[in-house]
Write a protein that binds this DNA or RNA. Structure first.
Lengths: 337, 337
DNA sequence: ACGATCGATGTTATCGATAACATAACTTCA
DNA sequence: TGAAGTTATGTTATCGATAACATCGATCGT
């Protein structure tokens, strides 16, 4: 059961192990006929190279560590897909971890990942612990924070301002004639994207001289549909004259929409509903839900491309890449009749 | 910039590298005082062990390779979460890859993963290429197929029969008085879970002596909401007297539901709609959508536990673990009239 | 036609941790 | 009290590939 190793292949081909190594990674300096012969023997023997040994020897793990809050979210899944797509082309492999939106989990994951000597780390911005930050700074590898624009970045950034994007959406609600606008989201004590969106909500209302206190933000992320429904029910009970609601995400907004439909409030005639993120549900629901469009895939591919550039030395500045995030009005915020 | 290594820590502590190694993995044979002293020095120096070297030496990668069709699907995300939860406890790390439902991508991923010498492989069942199968068989590690019950398993299985589960749901539609039942899903040439569900649909209708030909299954997975809407629109155009539709998944069913609402067919009075998978949307939609409940999390945790048992030798048989999948009737299939 | 260059391949040292074995000090109990 | 066991630690060899350098024959330009 002892595994076939490179020297076995070499022996079978009548060459040295080094030649086999070169044949496998196609590094030029090898005769095409030799290469073909070796590859045939590799296939015949079923040789599978040992990348642990290879990484150890070359001091290149071929890994990029990626941290997302949750996989169960199409945005981060798309970001991971975009990263994977680009990095695979560069011969790199994703080492994916998810934090469940918890900083201490993130710290542990960062530590574990760094033991694998990733060549870069890509982190979805969230409040990091001081130690996590220190670990990343000491790692001596490129660090890219994504999905936000941190005030104190660790390294590079590929993201957008959740705060301004949310503010723009609230402004759209104001422009469509709404004045008594509520917010449904996550509780206030977390440095997450959701908290930034809440700040954007407050920004926009204050700027317009409106009351920003209609907020129901009580649970930790992730927020789901049923929370949106329950929160909207509660919000309408507490502030019955509410004429619009901004939700931290589209699933939450869909829940809020169903709450209105169950209670008998018409959307958008009586209440406008807005979400965030352009999830599938916000396009397909009846009425469709106005949302902030942002492409998780683009964040992934841009971060992936930046990673490749940083690793091949073709980019050495500290980068701040902003991706587009824009308000897309749909039926749920049509100007009331 | 040369990294601190174990021997540096050893020197600082006045012990041998081996003692540092033992202190870090807490393997018993070490004096508590020595251990404390070493851990303090590790922290002070910011030493991060090199697991590549460690894996190379111990011949244990600490990885478990996991293949899912897509991350952008709450089921597989939950399965990954369940696996992660259990395997982390066992000191193992997930190496996650996704295939986009494509066998050739799966083959490439399996090959790449095996180079990392995973200690086990967990594969979401789909049609494997012959080479993928061979690679897995030759790897000499436990292989667990999940989310299905393959007729010719490679190793162990943790799953359920998508075919019978779908058949049971169709039977429920029949029991609720429906006779002209359609199916919306993925095209017929793939060995996926969706194709199994289509077979289950046909099984149930044939068994009841009903016509199973009302099928719209034209695109490759994954199926989305808008496809469900378009397909339902087309299906009702082609077979206007359809009184129920079974959809390959809940998002697809939600799309079909909105198609009915747009056209003016009442659900469930005129048409019953059924989905698969107990996605959030099927609980929250109005009406709620009848579905087949199956826990991706459970599949993950069960597969994780099995992995640990296989690796510590406490289980050596070829295992077939069935998880529960049951029909949950909701409003969308209430008995008409 | 001959030194310079190049292309293909071989040799050797090495990456950093850990398994396996060795050792020294210290207990234990007949 | 001394042989046998126990505990804490040290020593040595090793995992499998690859970087760096070495070699050798073929080719080329003038």
């Amino acid at each position: 059961m002892s595994r076939i190793k490179m020297s076995d292949v070499a022996k079978a081909a009548g060459v040295s192990a080094m030649t086999v190594s070169r044949a496998l990674k196609h590094d030029g300096r090898i005769a095409p006929t030799t290469r073909t012969r070796i590859l045939k023997i590799v296939a015949d023997l079923g040789y599978v190279p040992d990348r642990i040994a290879g990484s150890f020897s070359s001091r290149r793990s071929g890994f990029v560590g990626v941290l997302v809050p949750s996989l169960n979210n199409p945005h981060f899944a798309e970001t991971a897909a975009g990263l994977d797509e680009v990095l695979t082309r560069g011969g790199l492999q994703l080492l994916l971890g998810y934090t469940n939106y918890r900083a201490e989990v993130a710290e542990r994951l960062i530590e574990t990942m760094l033991e694998r000597r990733p060549e870069a780390m890509i982190i979805t911005f969230d409040d990091h612990t001081a130690r996590a930050r220190q670990l990343l700074l000491n790692a001596g590898i490129p660090v890219i924070e994504i999905w936000e624009t941190p005030t104190k970045p660790i390294g590079h950034v590929v993201g957008f301002s959740n705060r301004s994007a949310a503010a723009a959406m609230v402004q759209h609600l104001i422009d469509s004639g709404r004045r008594r606008i509520g917010f449904i989201g996550e509780r206030d004590d977390k440095g997450t994207r959701g908290a930034e969106r809440r700040r954007g909500f407050i920004d926009a209302l204050k700027a317009a001289g409106l009351d920003p206190s209609r907020r129901l933000a009580t649970v930790a992320p992730p927020i789901n549909m049923m929370f949106g429904r329950d929160a909207m029910t509660a919000l309408l009970e507490k502030w019955p004259d509410t004429d619009a609601v901004m939700c931290v995400s589209d699933p939450c907004a869909y829940g809020a929409l169903t709450a209105c439909q169950l209670i008998g409030r018409r959307v958008p005639e009586d209440v406008a509903v807005a979400g965030f993120g352009d999830f599938e549900i916000s396009r397909c629901s009846l009425p469709s839900i106005s949302t902030v469009v942002v492409s998780g895939l683009e964040i992934g591919t841009r971060a992936g491309e930046l990673t490749l550039q940083l690793l091949d030395g073709s980019c050495s500045d500290q980068m701040l890449i902003l991706v587009d995030a824009y308000t897309e009005p749909r039926e749920s915020s049509k100007i009331a009749g």
